[in-house]
Amino acid sequence: MSKAEIPESSFHMLDRQLTSGGFCELPAAPYRTDSTAWAILAIREDALGDAVERARSCLAKSQLKDGRVCISDDHPQAFWPTPLSALAWHGSLLHRNNQEQAIQFMLQAAGSIFEKNPNQLFAHDPSLRGWPWIENTFSWVVPTASAILALKLCGYSRHTRVQEAVRLIHDRQLPDGGWNYGNTIVYDQVLLPQPDTTGIALAALSGLVEKGAIEKSLFYLKNEVEHCRTPLSLGWAIIGLSAWQDKPPQSDTWIIESLNLQQTYGVYGTTLLSLLKCAYLSGGDFVEFVASRKA
């Protein structure tokens, strides 16, 4: 199936752009930073006029002085949209400073750590620094992988924080290769993997580790994606596999099937439509995909 078979209207979200330039998650909903960042990644080459720059400027107004971008003004601890924003500002001369401030914030922010203890009840190493969802909590797979993607895009692949974060992601890999939200073995029980977290972890590790380190992960995800049609799991699974030149040939068909699920679940949010569109367009490393987009 060629890419032309998914019409652009299937991913249509420009009517969700508010007068402020920002995007809402669903029609008639309020502005959200994560929705805006994802929309920018998805619409960059298709948007007419200044839609993308207005969205970026709106996102810039949400940035706090220390560089963080939060999910809402009244919850500054919830800074997990910061790396997404750094991806969204990429390529804009007008927002170069915003991107750099976001990156500098990421480099000083970290999840809580403590020393590994032989008597601890879980297997992972809590002394490794990654990134948390929420300030003053522990590091987890998705925010750490998101930060790695943003830092790679901005040329920080060799930074000590990226290297430590790669070790953290590796440390949170389940014995059979997949990842979940970030716990591996608790009370001697191996926990269960999830496709979305495995996909984003693989996307983050692309170019930073040898393929041998993630062969089992690819095996798990290639099997699992056959059964994934919900957009978050499918989107990240395809992006993760694509990052290792293993994009399933049926991906476009599966994306169509996922879009059709809106008949059951209602219209998808902006973040999910954007993720599916990126999965549809991306054929390789996710960071290279973001960097290659025009506008």
Partner: peptide, 14 residues
């Protein structure tokens, strides 16, 4: 809400 408390709801664990 996970968007304010994370996945898992780690704010409450802390």
């Amino acid at each position: 809400p996970g968007m304010f408390y994370g996945w898992p709801k780690n704010v409450f664990h802390a």
